[in-house]
Structures are given as structure tokens and as C-alpha cells.
């Protein structure tokens, strides 16, 4: 095990090259619904157990199924109401289990990115070949079912190896050149996109996908009240929007239909979406669009700026 994976360099949040998003926007806003499949009886992983009770773990399994049976349509219709196209973090086996959901999202021109095969298949303990095969399977599934060349990755259940980002970028290149495997949502170190070091030297970025705004982190880990969650979303937006005067920022709301789409949580979520999209200098967009725009306009400046700041002087 290493002290640090060397994925990015230290880059202070001042005097960075100025970002302006399309149309002069100050903040790029994207919503990433996780559309996941959890298995009732997954194979044992040596490092992480899927369910707290002996199989069948009805409490955990059934609420996640709620997300697909009930919650998905609710959130989809809500996002559509505010002109937001979802960037779907997809358990790609869901293409096989629930193609209706994939079709609905396709019809709304949503983006799909890879979140592994099942959210009950962890990267922990996989060999490099296994992880590469899993990632390849996921990218191929997305292409087969949506005709999209998968741009982004969020490791299944946030389970990583030291090589996760390398492998994702490499498989993307093998399959679709620079159209696939260009951004990751796995890192929480920044409020702006940042260049990531890969062994292949591919141009690849981290796009902010906030763990703090993630509904499951908020509701399950931090046990936040629904109305307070709505306020937190607005506060997060206000600060990033203000800082966007200096240089464009990114705000992401990562969601799960088994959390955000419960009847007692929809109102505060809608109020936050209405508030955010009601501001003029917001670019309502998707993960891929942010990554592509950044790679084209700001990536090279950022690499130079970061390199120049690795000396001790401020």
C-alpha cells in the first residue's frame, strides 16, 4: 500500500487560470442520478460484505429496488421540469434487467457513465485483468444499449484499486479513442476540474462530484433532515456561485432514487433545483460536457499552472 497514489499535484485555490463556462456562465451545474442494481445474493468479496444481515437482506435490498420501481420516474420527471439532463452513474447490468429505464433516459438525451456492473461487485481483491474486464464490459454495455461512448467513471460502490483510473482511461482509449474514458467522479479534492496523472499520459480530468452533496451520504451517513438537506444544497450553490465571479466552479448533486425520491424528500429537493436553475449565470449541463469543455479550453493552461506551482514560493 502507498501513502498517496500521485493522481494529482497540490494546486492552491487562488490565482488559478480563470475559467468561464459556455455563455459566460460562472457555475457548471450537473445532477448525477445513480441508477443502480444491487443483487439479492451476490458472491462473497474478501474485503467487503454486501449486506449486514444473512441473505436475503430484505431491508437493504428492497429499499434499493424501490429506487428503480418507484423513485426513478419521480426524479426523472422532476429534473425534466427544470431542464436538467441527468448524467447517469449506471450499474450497467441494469441495461439487461431494466431496459425501460435506459430507454426513458435515452429519450431525454441523458448521459450514461459507468458505475461498474452491479453495485454489489466490489473492485477490492480483483486482479488487474479482472478489473480491466469489468470496466470493458461496462463500457461495452453502455455502447450496446445507448450508443454512447462512455466518458466517465465512478467505481462501483466507490470501491477502488490503485489502478482504477488508469484502467478506465486505457480501456476507453482501446474501444473508442479519446471519445471515451476521459473523466472520473471518484475524487473529492476540488471544486473545479483538475488534470489527473495517468501512466498512459492520456488527457484525463477529475470532475467534481460532491460527496457532501450526495443524498445518500447526507441522509444515510450524516443523517440530515430533508428540509436541512435542501438548505445545504442552496448554501453550497450560493458559495460556489459567488466564487464563480473569480473563476468558474462546478456544482454536482449526486443522487439515488431510493433516497431522494422518497415522498418526504422530494419537496426540499425540488425547491433547491428551482433555486439553482433560477440563476442566470448557471450552465446546466452534464459530466461529459464539462469534461470536454475543460479539456478543450483549460486543461493545458491548468497543467502549466500546476507545474509552475510545485516550487515552494507562493
Amino acid at each position: 500500500m502507498k501513502q498517496d497514489l500521485g493522481l494529482y499535484d497540490y494546486w492552491p485555490y487562488e490565482n488559478r487560470p480563470k475559467i468561464r463556462w459556455p455563455g459566460g456562465a460562472k457555475l457548471a451545474f450537473w445532477v448525477a442520478p445513480n441508477i443502480e442494481y444491487y443483487e439479492l445474493d451476490p458472491p462473497q468479496n474478501p474485503f467487503r460484505t454486501a449486506w449486514p444481515q444473512p441473505i436475503p437482506a430484505i431491508p437493504g435490498y428492497s429499499i434499493r429496488d424501490y429506487g428503480n420501481r418507484v423513485g426513478h420516474v419521480r426524479q426523472m420527471q422532476l429534473l425534466n421540469k427544470y431542464g436538467i439532463r441527468g448524467s447517469v452513474s449506471l450499474s450497467t447490468a441494469l441495461c439487461d434487467h431494466h431496459p425501460e429505464i435506459i430507454k426513458q433516459c435515452r429519450d431525454l438525451d441523458w448521459e450514461f457513465f459507468s458505475h461498474g456492473i452491479y453495485n454489489t461487485r466490489y473492485t477490492y481483491g480483483m486482479t488487474e485483468d479482472q478489473e480491466r474486464e469489468m470496466i470493458r464490459d461496462s463500457i461495452e454495455s453502455i455502447f450496446k444499449h445507448t450508443n454512447q461512448k462512455c466518458a466517465g467513471y465512478l467505481a462501483p460502490a466507490l470501491s477502488h484499486s490503485e489502478l482504477t483510473l488508469d484502467l478506465f482511461a486505457e480501456v476507453g482509449t482501446e474501444l473508442f479513442g479519446n471519445d471515451a474514458g476521459i473523466y472520473t467522479c471518484d475524487l473529492f479534492h476540488d471544486d473545479q476540474p483538475t488534470p489527473i496523472h495517468l501512466r498512459s499520459k492520456k488527457r484525463f480530468v477529475s470532475i467534481p462530484y460532491s460527496l457532501e452533496m450526495n443524498d445518500t451520504i447526507a441522509y444515510v451517513s450524516n443523517k440530515i433532515e430533508p428540509r436541512r438537506y435542501g438548505q445545504i444544497l442552496k448554501d453550497n450553490f450560493d458559495q460556489l456561485y459567488k466564487e464563480g465571479d473569480n473563476s468558474g466552479t462546478v456544482m454536482c448533486i449526486p443522487t439515488h432514487n431510493y433516497q431522494i425520491s422518497c415522498p418526504h424528500r422530494m419537496k426540499s429537493y425540488e425547491e433547491a433545483l428551482e433555486y439553482i436553475t433560477g440563476h442566470s449565470d448557471v450552465w446546466v449541463t452534464t459530466g461529459r460536457e464539462i469534461a470536454e469543455y475543460y479539456l478543450e479550453h483549460y486543461y493545458d493552461d491548468a497543467v502549466r499552472d500546476i507545474a509552475g506551482k510545485q516550487e515552494s514560493k507562493s
Binding site: 458472491p43 468479496n45 474478501p46 474485503f47 456492473i117 461487485r121 477490492y124 481483491g125 480483483m126 486482479t127 479482472q130 474486464e133 469489468m134 464490459d137
Partner: peptide
């Protein structure tokens, strides 16, 4: 420890 060969079935 690693996952067994059926982990991707």
C-alpha cells in the same frame, strides 16, 4: 486475498 475466478460471472 483476491476475488475468485467466478467473481465476474
Amino acid at each position: 486475498m483476491s476475488t475468485n475466478k467466478n467473481y465476474l460471472k
